[in-house]
Amino acid sequence: MPQLEFVTVDVFTKTRFTGNPLAIVKVPADRDVSTEQCLEITREFSLSETLFLHEQQTGNDGVPEWRVRIFIAAPAEIPFAGHPTIGAACYALSTLAKGAQKGRLICNAGPIGIQYTDGVARAAIPHNYHRHSEHAFKPEEVYGSHEVMIRACGKAKAIDIVSPVKGMNFIAIELPDLEALALENNALGPQPKPRLDEEWDEGFSGSLLYVITNASTCNDDGVVKLRTRMIEGAFEDPATGSASCGVCALLAMKLKLGRTTKFELTQGVEMGRKSDIGVLLTLNESMDAVERIELSGSAVKVMEGRLEYEL
């Protein structure tokens, strides 16, 4: 029976059993693992995401590169996700490439340049940021699934629907304070499905709840700090890099603090899996479009082994 080696890592943390767990399944060059087999393996791990990492190649520029496929627990394949990207970057560069400082991941959303120094991975994220505007999304549609918020929190400060890339969609809900964010513990359940713009109506949708924790929006170091939670149905994610990229693009366009804005996001606190996510976002010269998104974070290995699967 064929076998594949795997590791699990906790991502957006340096402490085991915090952050967001990720399974990385290594696929040898001479092995063809079908989509259906990937789906079955993803179901078995039952983590929020499982990444299939194909054997290392060398790019035309001489840097190591890896073809990757990312699957969510639904299960389904998705074009891009943040915590698998950072987890794979940390593992591939620190372990497989024997300490190389830069490389490349080739995912369905496009090539991702990665760097790894001092235990932190940085990834130039493929992006096609879009703020949905064809359909109004009323507060009542959100509160219908968050009754605790209605009773205790009043109205959200802002509600937007954003996509960092096509196929990844998030209702971005700004809450007034951390107390409102914590009350969401009692409000997990059916989530609203956003009405997306016609040409963008596909893929995954979730709700990202956030609080800007800087009293004056931006501290002395020029960093915007957020506390976040990502909820989809009865599922809560400890760390969501793609949603983080989406909400930071939204805020960079709204706040216009400068062409480049640094964000530090803390997620997963309420579920006991604190995650630290970094986003460096650059707008174009006219500050009306996203030019570059860099996602950063750490990862620590937790388990390794072999899995068996049917041909």
Results as ranks from 00 to 15, higher is better:
M1W: 03
F6H: 06
V7I: 15
T8R: 04
V9G: 08
D10Y: 11
L22E: 01
A23S: 14
V25T: 07
A29S: 15
R31N: 06
D32F: 11
V33Q: 08
Q37C: 06
C38L: 10
E49R: 07
F52N: 05
H54S: 08
H54V: 01
Q57L: 13
T58D: 05
N60E: 15
V63Q: 12
R69Q: 14
I72Q: 12
A74G: 12
E77S: 12
E77H: 08
A81F: 07
I86A: 10
A89I: 02
Y91L: 10
L96N: 02
L96G: 02
G99W: 09
A100V: 03
L105T: 13
A109T: 09
P111E: 12
I114M: 08
Q115D: 11
T117I: 11
G119V: 10
V120F: 07
V120M: 13
A124V: 14
A124E: 14
A124S: 14
R131S: 13
S133T: 15
H135Q: 09
F137Q: 05
F137G: 02
E141I: 02
S145F: 06
A152G: 08
I159P: 07
P164K: 11
G167W: 12
M168G: 02
M168K: 15
M168F: 12
N169E: 11
I171S: 11
P176L: 04
L178S: 13
E179V: 13
A180V: 10
N185H: 01
L188S: 03
G189P: 06
P190F: 10
Q191L: 00
Q191C: 09
K193E: 12
G203D: 09
V211Q: 00
V211A: 00
T213H: 04
A215S: 14
A215D: 15
S216W: 01
C218P: 00
T228P: 02
G233N: 11
A234L: 14
P238L: 05
A239L: 08
G241P: 13
S244F: 05
C245Y: 09
V247K: 03
A249Q: 09
L257P: 08
R259E: 13
T261W: 02
K262E: 14
K262C: 07
L265S: 07
Q267M: 05
E270I: 02
M271S: 03
G272F: 01
S275R: 06
L283D: 05
S286I: 01
D288F: 00
V290K: 02
E294G: 00
E294I: 15
L295V: 01
G297F: 08
S298E: 10
A299L: 01
R306N: 11
L307T: 08
